[in-house]
């Protein structure tokens, strides 16, 4: 019997699979990555912002509405893209095309499948948020060079959703509950986590709920970097960072566990 050298296989192969899939649609996808921020920044920032800025907007920290809104939209967009990437493609690999089962018949492990997908989502988010950030700068909505650090902050925000949602997706057999994730999770968070207005404008009862969600911390961190106010409250920024990292860490562990279990079950 020939000796068994450990095969040179890592989650990078899984990443490569997602990349090959993406190559087929990347033009359309890249186009919408540009289009989405332009539409949002124009409509909300310039259109709505003109009215907001007419009033006295001390709640916004004395900056134009567009400048306040842009980093919030950046973090929220990362969340939405991440939620999409962590639901349907995971269902596709486990249930529809069963491509993850095909991988599992090779030296690739369940851990590789989970980490390869999260690595791919990280790259996707980096692409989307970089394009978004460039548009923010072009719209003149960035007030600090620290805006470049808003990219990793927004990516981290996305991953704080992607990892736990991927773990959830791996337990599902149909997309039925995905609708609930978007309707009762992603959309309310988009509206109530400080993206469009400061959370302290919410009823007192709702504020602590906002603090528990990763988007609130993602928006706050991304905004502090974009406005350059992060240096005023560095401890708070570290708290935001810690919350996001906790969601990513716990989510990743659960995603590895659930995807591995699902592959073993067949």
């Amino acid at each position: 019997m020939a000796s068994l050298a450990h095969p040179r296989t890592t989650f990078g192969r899984v990443f490569e699979h997602r990349f090959r899939q993406y190559r087929r649609t990347f033009r359309a996808s890249l186009f919408s990555s540009f289009l989405l921020p332009v539409l949002f920044l124009t409509a909300m920032g310039l259109g709505l912002g003109a009215y907001v800025d007419d009033g006295t907007s001390e709640a916004l920290g004395g900056v134009p509405y567009l400048v306040f809104l842009a980093p919030g939209l950046l973090a929220a967009t990362a969340m939405q893209s991440a939620a999409f990437e962590a639901t349907f493609p995971i269902m596709g690999g486990l249930v529809w095309n069963r491509t993850f089962h095909a991988m599992f018949a090779t030296p690739i492990s369940g851990r590789d499948v989970a980490l390869g997908n999260l690595a791919w989502i990280t790259v996707r988010l980096t692409l989307i948020t970089t394009v978004f950030t460039i548009m923010i700068v072009l719209f003149g909505a960035a007030s600090s060079p620290l805006i470049s650090l808003a990219i990793p902050a927004a990516v981290l925000t996305g991953l704080a959703f992607a990892a736990p949602i991927a773990a959830f997706s791996a337990t599902q057999r149909t997309v039925e509950k995905f609708n609930a994730v978007f309707r009762f999770g992603i959309t309310p968070l988009f509206l109530f986590s400080g993206t469009f207005y400061p959370v302290d404008q919410l009823p007192l009862l709702l504020q602590p709920i906002a603090w528990l969600t990763p988007l609130y911390h993602g928006v706050a961190l991304t905004r502090a970097l974009s406005l350059g106010t992060i240096t005023e409250q560095p401890i708070l920024a570290l708290v935001h960072l810690a919350v996001l990292l906790t969601f990513v860490g716990v989510g990743t562990v659960l995603a590895v566990r659930n995807i591995s279990r699902r592959l073993v079950r067949g």
């Binding site: 095969p7 192969r13 699979h17 069963r98 491509t99």
Partner: peptide, 30 residues
């Protein structure tokens, strides 16, 4: 790494081409 598996249900990637399906599968083996 030394098995060839033909599962009961097809697990091909419908989004990729015929040849790409073979190439990426080889990549899984390093």
């Amino acid at each position: 790494a030394r098995l060839g598996v033909v599962p009961q249900q097809d697990t091909l990637d419908n989004e990729l081409t015929v040849r790409e399906n073979l190439v990426i599968y080889g990549r899984y083996f390093g």
